[in-house]
């Protein structure tokens, strides 16, 4: 991996919510342009905290995050959006009282001039959203909300998209749709970093995976390698459905 290829780097992050209690104890990551990265690990390993720290939602106490070589550690969320990072939270990921179109407009809040152009692009990826653009987001199902949330995050044409457990709470067929959609988004050139509980499905579609354990990055390899790694199988994947 040459230095020019790297779009996002996290170096030995130490972070946590409460004073004196660290959730991340030295997490590192290096992501190349256009990669689809999966982050897996047991409950409480710090996966979501790691993703949130990249997006400035958890205070980083030590370590550094760089985007295209520029230090973005602890920048505010709205500043990170301007730098080209999009974030889709696991829950509460739409504005319920706003319509679908208004949700997408909020996604393009910092680039209002290009709203219509981006709406057309998003319309190609999610045609159903354009058909139902005047429907209130609060009336949508979990899967539909997830779609709106992804579309909203893509409205600013981000370089890096962070997804926090996009398949959580969805039925198996909706989960499949979400993984396929994630891959489709990645193929348009967007670098995707995804935290997932469904580790097997996540590793099947991602280019590389990071396994987190007790707030540190325990292993990293390609998705296919991790799927076959006996240690990962024993600790995180289990044998069912292998």
């Amino acid at each position: 991996m040459t230095k020019d290829d790297v779009i996002l780097r996290a170096d030995n992050l130490i972070a946590g919510y409460l004073p004196g209690v660290n959730i991340l104890n030295g997490c590192s990551m290096e992501v190349k342009k256009g990669e689809l990265i999966g982050i897996i690990g047991p409950n409480g390993a710090g996966k979501s905290t790691f993703l949130k720290s990249l997006f400035g939602l958890v205070n980083i106490r030590e370590g550094e995050v760089t985007l295209n070589g520029a230090n973005i550690t602890n920048l505010r969320a709205d500043e990170l959006v301007r730098h080209g990072i999009g974030f889709v939270p696991q829950t509460d990921n739409v504005f319920p009282s706003l319509t679908i179109e208004e949700n997408l407009e909020m996604g393009a809040y910092q680039a209002h001039a290009s709203f219509k152009k981006r709406l057309a692009v998003i319309g190609d990826l999610f045609p159903v959203l354009i058909d139902r653009r005047h429907q209130r987001a609060g009336s949508l199902s979990g899967g539909e909300r997830q779609m709106v949330a992804m579309a909203r995050a893509l409205m600013m044409d981000p370089q890096v998209l962070l997804l926090d457990e996009p398949s959580a709470g969805l039925s198996p067929d909706r989960q499949d749709e979400t993984f396929v959609r994630t891959r489709t988004i990645n193929r348009t050139g967007v670098t995707v970093i995804m935290v997932e509980q469904n580790a097997r499905r996540c590793l099947q579609i991602c280019d590389r995976g990071y396994v987190l354990d007790q707030g540190t990055t325990a292993y990293t390899a390609t998705g296919k390698e991790l799927l076959k790694d006996p240690k990962v199988i024993e600790l995180y994947l289990g044998t069912l459905g292998a």
Binding site: L57, S97, R152, A153, M156
Partner: peptide
């Protein structure tokens, strides 16, 4: 939007 969800509003820019 802020009224609905301030963190998501910040995450939207």
């Amino acid at each position: 939007a802020v009224s609905d969800n301030p963190s998501l509003a910040a995450a939207s820019g």
